[in-house]
């Protein structure tokens, strides 16, 4: 094939087509969760029931102000729900597991994490968390090595450089390595590709797919529908503080009207396929990979000919 832009196809999660079967143990569970900020008139989140299973790759999407950031902060115990309960491996957060303990299990990468790099070397920055756990020097080195390799920053090449000598994409991955060095079971990322160029974005997404295949549970908060459509096995859609859709990307994006009404987009492939269908070319509409989209169009056009 002429086109070599198959990057996201190639890294698409191998579990993508596996239907979501709750056979894996539940990692986190929210039961009847609501949250109202002290100054808020209306709840930021209301009646949220959500179970995250081990090894899942969940895309969390929703318009600005829909409650995504609040949910992220509930997932790692930075906020306590004002209604309902959050459980980590069946242990209620705040009662059987403390916020500090929870944050070792659930790593959060906030927006523009590279602004929090501060140590003289990449090594020191990534080692910062493990050092605070009081681990042995050997264990710290092992973790830093592993975390840097995981984000694709070779230890030899990068560990002793200043974080500020790195490119934007590298700085962001160094910051993520700092979170991975805590060896969390679940990684939550808030708009991790914002501001990155195409290459940096693709490298970062590839890294997430690899980490997930190795068993890490990943929650990706994003406004980029193409990213989650290809990578996540499940999408959770928030609107106005409530979960309004929850299912595989194909199911969620088949509700096209609902998605666009709440101010979200369809993935670019879906937009294109729908337009073709409107003009009488019989293609399926819920395909998100360039290769499958291409095949579907070829099939449809050959049938017409």
């Amino acid at each position: 094939m002429a086109c070599s832009y198959r990057f996201l196809d190639a890294i698409s999660n191998p579990n993508y087509r596996k239907a979501i079967m709750p056979i894996e143990p539940t990692l986190m569970e929210l039961k009847g969760v609501g949250f109202t900020y002290p100054t808020g008139l209306t709840p930021a989140l209301a009646n949220v029931d959500l179970a995250i299973y081990e090894g899942e790759f969940v895309g969390l999407i929703g318009p600005t102000g829909s409650g995504k950031s609040t949910l992220v902060q509930l997932l790692n115990g930075l906020l306590q729900p004002t209604e309902g309960i959050v459980l980590y491996r069946n242990r209620p957060i705040g009662r059987e597991i403390s916020g500090v303990e929870l944050r070792r299990e659930v790593g959060v990468v906030f927006q523009f994490p590279e602004t929090q790099l501060f140590e003289p070397t990449v090594f020191d920055d990534v080692a910062f968390g493990p050092k605070n756990l009081g681990l042995s020097r050997r264990e710290i080195e092992r973790r830093v090595f592993k975390a840097l390799e995981a984000v694709g920053l070779g230890f030899e090449e990068f560990a002793h450089r200043s974080p500020f000598s790195l490119s934007g994409g590298e700085m962001r991955r160094a910051a993520i390595a700092g979170v991975l060095a805590m060896e969390p079971k679940m990684l939550v990322l808030d708009e991790p590709t914002c501001g990155l160029d195409a290459r940096g974005r693709n490298e970062l997404l590839e890294m997430l797919a690899t980490l997930n295949s190795a068993g890490l549970t990943v929650i990706l908060v994003t406004h980029n529908m193409d990213e989650v459509a290809r990578l996540a096995m499940r999408l959770v859609v928030l609107d106005d503080g409530r979960i309004v859709l929850d299912g595989p990307p194909a199911t969620v994006f088949s509700q096209a009207d609902r998605i666009t009404e709440m101010g979200l987009d369809l993935p670019a492939t879906s937009v294109l396929l729908r337009r073709l269908r409107e003009r009488g070319i019989e293609v399926p509409t819920e395909l998100f990979e360039i290769s499958s989209t291409c095949e579907a169009i070829v099939d449809a056009l050959r049938r017409r000919a």
Binding site: A2, Y5, D197, A198, I290, T293, I297, V298, L301
Partner: peptide, 16 residues
């Protein structure tokens, strides 16, 4: 290292 527009990407493959 730039993205290409999706229609342009597909056009190459469809032409091929």
């Amino acid at each position: 290292g730039l993205d290409a527009p999706l229609p342009r990407l597909l056009a190459g493959d469809l032409a091929e």
